[in-house]
Design a protein around this nucleic acid. Structure first.
Length: 318
DNA sequence: AGCCAGGCTTGGT
DNA sequence: ACCAAGCATGGC
């Protein structure tokens, strides 16, 4: 087990890892555990930055800095946000929220699974998919602070969850997690295999995407080098991938900072915060979204999204 | 019990 | 061009 300290300021790890960008992070006692590529990782915030631990020896931590985007200067991003009341409030409420830089395939697959699903449910589906079809990864990352913690009650219905064991010193996560399954792996499965992961009508979409990547019809690394509009067009050729999901991949995986995913939350946010008591058509709303938020619109979108979900009282009926 | 969920596709006007 | 239904599943 090796560790490092990523020096960074203005980084809200909780908000970032729990803002619906990535679906595999789990928080326990101030520690976040997850898997990046094939590396199991445990993160915690310190006064100086983010302390990171992982399994095997790590010579170079750049992959983690890339994923977490710790080299991004937050102020430079926030200064490009429009100076209006909703953005000021969202910034004040979520300061330190960052946009990650994820693996394109995992991001695409996850968001194909996201349509008409709540975030908790997306997490469940993704977890099932990884457990069944991901590569097993052995780890000895400690799940909780071993120095001062009484053993909790064993988890009920621990069939699919990672089992916990008490090793006499502390509570240890039972050494088994999984990487996100590759497109090649999923391409060899059947629709029924995927439906068994509770993804319903999304199963054929995920399968078709996996197959077109596995047989080279879609090259996600080539998409990375395209201009935004072309990359978006390329992604939306996939069935089950429309503008919203494409924008999520463009923003969360490729770093197209101006991509602005519009989902039901953002639609509510724009109507409620920018056009209270005024009927605004969806077309008009999209034009506003595409022009109002500047070169890092995607970051602004993430601030509004997290702000709405965590801080704004929802009107009755939702 | 019924409504809704980080939507997309298709078939109706 | 705009609208609604249908899609599969589960949380609340």
């Amino acid at each position: 087990m090796t560790q490092t300290l990523l020096r960074v300021r203005d980084y809200d790890l909780d908000a970032t890892l729990d803002s619906g960008q990535a679906f595999r992070w789990e928080r326990d006692n101030g520690y976040w555990t997850g898997v990046i590529g094939r590396q199991p990782v445990r993160l915690t915030r310190t006064p100086d930055g983010i302390r990171a631990e992982t399994g095997g020896p790590v010579a170079d931590w750049q992959w983690l800095r890339d994923y977490l985007q710790t080299d991004t200067e937050l102020d430079a991003v926030l200064q490009t946000f429009p100076d209006d009341a909703p953005m000021r409030e969202a910034m004040a409420a979520c300061r330190g929220l960052r946009v990650l830089r994820q693996d394109p395939w995992e991001c695409l697959a996850s968001f194909i699974l996201s349509s008409t699903k709540q975030i908790v449910q997306i997490r469940q589906i993704v977890a099932l998919l990884c457990e069944r079809f991901g590569e097993p990864i052995t780890t000895n990352l400690v799940a909780t602070d071993v120095s001062r913690r009484t053993p909790p009650l064993p988890e009920v219905s621990a069939d699919s969850r990672p089992r916990l064991r008490f090793d006499g010193v502390g509570l240890v996560k039972n050494c088994l997690s999984h990487s996100f399954p590759t497109a090649e792996r999923l391409a060899g499965l059947t629709e029924a295999d995927l439906r068994a992961c509770k993804m319903g009508f999304r199963a054929p979409h995920l399968l078709a995407a996996a197959r077109s990547i596995a047989d080279g019809k879609l090259d996600l690394e080539r998409v990375r080098r395209l201009p935004l509009a072309e990359a978006r067009a390329e992604l939306t050729t996939l069935r089950g991938v429309g503008g919203k999901i494409a924008d999520c991949v463009l923003l969360f995986a490729y770093g197209f900072d101006s991509a602005f995913p519009v989902d039901v939350w953002i639609e509510r946010a724009l109507r409620q915060l920018y056009f209270p008591r005024r009927r605004v058509g969806e077309k008009r709303l999209r034009h506003f979204a595409a022009t109002h938020f500047g070169p890092h619109a995607g970051h602004a979108q993430q601030y509004l999204f997290h702000y709405m979900r965590t801080k704004v009282k929802q009107p009755a009926g939702h």
